[in-house]
Write a protein that binds this DNA or RNA. Structure first.
Lengths: 198, 198
DNA sequence: CGAAAAGTAAACTCGCGGGTGTAATTGGGA
DNA sequence: TCCCAATTACACCCGCGAGTTTACTTTTCG
């Protein structure tokens, strides 16, 4: 890796860390330069402005967004097993500390600067597409009756996020009873399948 | 209403409007003073600082938070009808433009300043409590089998928010198929009840 | 090697915006 | 009517932080 590319990568990494920790507004460019072990001028040579830097990060985040992979329907496996696997994969992703930190930064900015919303909708669309494909397959296979796969996918993901994402994102601890992931996933999959079984 | 109280109320109202429109960071105290038809000094006499002003707004928002009322279980009515009523009430609240604007402001700040999170959790807890009471009642009445009412309530509200709140909050338009509220609510209630019926 | 490209340190500009001080004005209650 | 507290206009302070300039050193590469 060339020296200049290395520098650029260092700066980007430092920026991510700082933004994660302090938020966009409370991170200064000097701070980023220090953390990256680079001079402020170099930072500005690579990314034209603070805003430009943020965009670079968002772009990077998008490029890595093909995280969720295996959601293939399997005619041999029982439905609960399959759906639990998918659900756990999603929940694990959402629960990941670094993912959440990044989401916090991006979303907090997104709330007031709607320019990036298209990018974000791509993210959520990705999961939805995977899930609705699975449901369509199960439907075709005659094991499920899902008239609107996209709607069903939204319902399913909505429940998972209500458990694993939103409360943690906003630092809201759920009431006294924090339920174990396995219990929640089992219960949700069971209810969902019962609601859509033939 | 005394003159000074009137002034205070005007300032608060103006602040809400400005924060709603431009966000916390992009609203200046001068701007608020202008919009309120008050002098900057008066603003500072009433609320010690920008932060103090924001807190006053949050407090006001909390005071008005007993919006959702009727969630009483009725042994005579069919379950789908009852649950649809509740669901529509919740969705209507979440969809309300002014509620969403306020939530945008508060949540965007909450993401990076966790101090207020306790207040927010109160809000969500309120809906959850109402719903889980309803479910417990239906359970006791032998019409539903809900082992964990709180969990079920989270699931239900989670689905509603995934449809009516989060996408709109982040200005994310759902893919080509924007589904009508009645269809979504019907489908969700049906699936949920089928998943939990005896 | 030697020149061009990239990086550095530090001082600097500059506008913004939160917050204050003050002297003059208003207005409502006794 | 008179007084005192609230209000106002406006100038002012000041720290912060984005972005720039400059004079210099280091790296890359033909």
């Amino acid at each position: 890796m060339k020296h200049t590319d290395r520098k650029r990568a260092d700066i980007l990494a430092a920026a991510v860390t700082e933004f994660r920790t302090y938020g966009y507004d409370n991170t200064t460019m000097d701070q980023i330069a220090d953390a990256a072990g680079a001079s402020k001028r170099t930072v500005y040579n690579h990314f034209g402005s603070k805003e430009g830097m943020f965009e670079a990060i968002v772009r990077e985040m998008m490029d890595r967004s093909d995280v969720l992979t295996g959601g293939e329907y399997d005619a041999e496996q029982p439905l609960p097993r399959q759906l639990k696997r998918i659900a756990n994969e999603i929940v694990d992703t959402l629960k990941d500390e670094s993912y959440r930190d990044l989401a916090r930064v991006v979303l907090s900015r997104l709330l007031m600067v709607p320019e990036y919303s298209a990018l974000i909708s791509e993210q959520t669309q990705h999961i939805n597409t995977m899930l609705s494909r699975w449901m369509r397959a199960a439907h075709r296979d005659g094991r499920l009756r899902v008239p609107r796969p996209e709607l069903a996918a939204d319902q399913f993901v909505g429940m998972l996020m209500a458990y694993a994402f939103w409360p943690a994102l906003f630092n809201v601890e759920k009431g006294s009873t924090t339920i174990k992931q396995s219990i929640f996933v089992n219960q949700t999959v069971t209810m969902f399948l019962k609601g859509y079984e033939c």
